[in-house]
């Protein structure tokens, strides 16, 4: 078995009003990537903060490369990107990177800094004050600062929240590059499409894992065939396809997503034919329909809804 980057056992943490994490276990191997997904308040941020030693668990324990996360041995190997892209607004991009390099005791960081600025495509903005950078650029600069000491583990708390879609894609490409280079990456994210990129995913809700595994395992465990129906009034369509009659026709569940409805069934083709006729009866137009592979979103929504295939 490969070396463990992170081992969390029975991790629990409560605050004044809420029990944020109610005992979770997981392991991340060196070089692997792990995503913590879940709705707001699921305990993702608490988990990340426990992993980087900003919080102490009430019970259970975390080890980072075999050490406690607050120990110097672990700190030197850990890079943390917080939700707020914490930077010094009155310092330039260059100075921010230099400062974090010095705090980590790096002396000859000039070439490392150039490399990071190149890598995050921030070289043209190196003299600009951090407070004058756009959201996406701030995020990349914060990433550069978190990477300046060449950590072996990168911990990120919702790194794409509040960032535009183009910057978001660019950001995940950068992270994918790091991951290919052998870095262990752990990220919390509310977006399930982002979680698809990770080696393994922990689905958190109310401080507990609903499911834990690789995206493939999770989808295989789903057990239903998915039919995507593109239509106008997704909510109404979902309601019709969740009726008693639909259930009798083999439709296990229906989920509305903006401009489409996903239905789950044992026999996908039969369910698709039923759905088209039922919607035609109601006079609702269907733009297109097709049998699709289940997404993590399907899996998670279904787990949250409480029914399992």
């Amino acid at each position: 078995m490969a070396e463990l980057a992170i081992e969390a056992i029975g991790l629990a943490k409560g605050f004044k009003e809420v029990e944020a994490l109610k005992g979770v276990d997981f392991r991340v191997e060196r070089g692997a990537s792990f995503a913590l997904v879940g709705p707001d308040g699921a305990g993702k941020t608490t988990a990340i903060r426990l992993l980087c030693g900003l919080l102490k668990p009430d019970s259970g324990r975390v080890s980072v490369f075999g050490a406690g996360p607050a120990e110097p041995a672990a700190k030197a190997k850990l890079g943390y990107l917080s939700q707020r892209f914490s930077l010094y607004g009155d310092l330039s991009a260059d100075e921010n990177i230099a400062f974090f390099a010095e705090i980590h005791g790096r002396r000859n960081y000039a070439s490392r800094r150039d490399e990071l600025l190149e890598f995050t495509r921030l070289s043209p903005f190196r003299d600009r004050l951090a407070s004058k950078l756009s959201g996406g650029m701030r995020q990349k600069l914060a990433l550069a600062c978190a990477l300046v000491h060449e950590p072996e583990l990168l911990l990120m708390d919702e790194p794409t929240t509040g960032v535009d879609p183009v910057s978001r894609r660019e950001f995940w490409e950068i992270v994918a590059g790091l991951s290919r280079g052998g870095m262990t990456v752990v990220a919390a994210t509310p977006y399930l499409d982002e979680a698809e990129r990770f080696d393994s995913v922990g689905m958190l809700d109310e401080g507990r894992f609903l499911a834990l595994g690789s995206p493939r395992q999770l989808k295989e465990g789903f057990g239903w065939t998915v039919v995507e129906i593109a239509c106008a009034d997704a909510r109404r369509v979902a309601r019709i396809l969740s009726s008693e009659e639909a259930r009798g026709a083999g439709v296990a569940a229906a989920q509305a997503f903006g401009d489409r409805v996903d239905i789950f069934a044992g026999d996908g083709e039969a369910a698709r034919r039923y759905a088209l006729s039922a919607l035609a009866r109601e006079g609702l137009a269907v733009a297109s329909s097709r049998i699709a592979a289940p997404s993590l979103e399907n899996v998670f929504m279904q787990l949250l809804g409480g029914t399992k295939g």
Partner: peptide, 9 residues
């Protein structure tokens, strides 16, 4: 940034 500093050695 205080949090960021705490995470460093």
């Amino acid at each position: 940034t205080l949090e960021q500093l705490i995470v460093t050695p």
